[in-house]
Design a protein around this nucleic acid. Sequence first.
DNA 1: CCTGGACATGAGAATCATTATCAGGTGGCC
DNA 2: GGCCACCTGATAATGATTCTCATGTCCAGG
Lengths: 134, 134
Amino acid sequence: MNTEPAVAITARRASRQRTAVSAYLTRRTTFASAQEIHAALRESGEPVGLATVYRALQAMVEDGELDALRTDDGETVYRRCGTSHHHHLVCRECGRTVEVEAPDVERWATAVAAQHGFGDVVHTLEIFGVCDRH
Amino acid sequence: MNTEPAVAITARRASRQRTAVSAYLTRRTTFASAQEIHAALRESGEPVGLATVYRALQAMVEDGELDALRTDDGETVYRRCGTSHHHHLVCRECGRTVEVEAPDVERWATAVAAQHGFGDVVHTLEIFGVCDRH
DNA sequence: CCTGGACATGAGAATCATTATCAGGTGGCC
DNA sequence: GGCCACCTGATAATGATTCTCATGTCCAGG
Ligand SMILES: [Mn+2]
Ligand SMILES: [Mn+2]
Ligand SMILES: [Zn+2]
Ligand SMILES: [Zn+2]
């Protein structure tokens, strides 16, 4: 009989590059794009190939270590976030980000979907504004 | 003295092409991408340049005639929508879309932003699921 | 420790949606 | 009809992301 898991658990291997990307996002508190991370690491003397940055970010998102969101100018940005479901309040000026929870909204989203006969529901919710440091 | 408005009011001129794009989105009930619209119009024998499709969509969004949203595979899709503020419940399988209003969520978003000292707030909220025709 | 081989890296090419160019067309007020 | 600001569309450019593939390197087993 087959004792293998249906989907192989992707074994990640340690490397200087992945560590560098991960460490960068630990230091950083705002969302950052792959390009930005690539430039910053190169700057700081620990160069990592751009493709590798993309791969590292992708892996970390899959592993639930990072949240990703697409800016309206088409870049995907990443941030180390808490593991429980939450949304973001982001400053357009400085990028300052607050994680917010919204149980009422979660309930509302589920309920309105059910009312219209929709199942298997997910939602996206982000709030953008200007923080009080401006 | 200067009697001109600070920003010129963009005068839109009528054209077969704009009419075709507009009409297509009136017929259609689900979100559609520029590429899709371009192909459909060519198919139906009223060809419109791709750049023109993009320009028409852009203008209609500016004029508040269309809602636009970015799919997670990076395409922007457009839909003729109601003019009052609302959000979307979209079927992943067939694209069926329901416009939903959520005054509680609006209030919550404003309140949570204010609590954290954020002003000039906007938010995005979309719900995706699978509708009951599947 | 050693080693095989699966996994990772990175330079560069490819992809693909979108935007910019620019030469030629046209709607609409006079 | 004529002017001309605006519009069109073929094509090139852009830019983020992904793919390729030859080369490097973890690390589980031995
Ligand atoms: Mn987060
Ligand atoms: Mn809408
Ligand atoms: Zn700020
Ligand atoms: Zn459906």
